[in-house]
Write a protein that binds this DNA or RNA. Sequence first.
DNA 1: AGAATGGTGGACCGCGCGGTCAATAACTTT
DNA 2: AAAGTTATTGACCGCGCGGTCCACCATTCT
Lengths: 190, 190
Amino acid sequence: MLRAVRDQFWNKGYAATSMDDLMKVTGLGKGSLYGAFGDKHQLFLRIFDTYCVNSVESVRQALEGPDAGALERLRRYLLGAATASAGPSRRGCLVARGTAELSGQGATDVTDRALTAFQGIEAHFARCLEQAQRHGDVAAGADPRKLAAMLLAVFRGLEALGRAGMDEASLRGMVETALEGLPVSARRRR
Amino acid sequence: MLRAVRDQFWNKGYAATSMDDLMKVTGLGKGSLYGAFGDKHQLFLRIFDTYCVNSVESVRQALEGPDAGALERLRRYLLGAATASAGPSRRGCLVARGTAELSGQGATDVTDRALTAFQGIEAHFARCLEQAQRHGDVAAGADPRKLAAMLLAVFRGLEALGRAGMDEASLRGMVETALEGLPVSARRRR
DNA sequence: AGAATGGTGGACCGCGCGGTCAATAACTTT
DNA sequence: AAAGTTATTGACCGCGCGGTCCACCATTCT
């Protein structure tokens, strides 16, 4: 049922979603919604929060594994994100949409959660890069955290560009180019 | 006067901006607005369009110059974007905000303009990188268009992360890291 | 000067919004 | 089975929305 609410916000945005929409989509009466969550904003926040947590968790799962395949897992994850952002599935990422819409009118509760999520994702990228470094796929001298931060920017860029309708091939190309730019350990350099 | 409308949309978003807000901010009567533009959506589109054109143009201007300083100009531009995205100025980029809010309910007129703008910016990045390549700051074998696309992703990522409240130092770091990843011509490699 | 013209303002419209609340249904307890 | 208790409902509220429309006034033409 929370999922239905989430999809509604996800598809139409915060302001464009009315409480009647939410009634229709959940099958619940208006009073029940207000009784359980108190507010449209609070309801959104609830949805947004679990979405953020899930996002970070799904990144963790996707990157989990032995040192050997770490870089490849990261690559696959980012390419998957590129494909997902591009498809005419259209909806993109709720975190991006929510922050874009609600930042700037004092909704620090929203942006704070988004920031935390982004930092969580960045941390997982960094851990994955450390693994890759340990395995020798990334140069020993490199700073995994800096690289992770930069890949996070690319990651969010994919989402933004995908929303504008950029095609899948271009987005995947960006990922490849970014990964090619990672410092490779000397013995692996072509 | 169009500037006042633009600022309103820019600060509050599309859905959250009412026609009364626009009346107040322009000093015009409602009938005048409708007489001149016909519609809230059309009015937004008008604003959005010129904003897109101006954005691309401002990139062009920022990157214009001799081959010698091309890479440095690009670097400065991206660092400036990082700083601008981070400040508690808050408003960020109207293209990003508009596409995030309006993509997905068939508003292809909005996303099309945004996509065109992004491609224009990418093209200017690529031209600048070609210059840098000609001057020997970028490896001869590299593909400036691919690099430009990747930097575009970083660029849009900065905006998205800045909106979530990420601090300026982090954003600037991402730019530096991305630029360090560019293939440097052999004779300049440390 | 007076008539014709067209751009302008803001009262006005119906609607759908976020939010409330008393009536009611469903379930628990004895 | 009856009483008590909690959860659910949808009619209802006032408001502010996007959009319309006409009286008004400044300008121009004769």
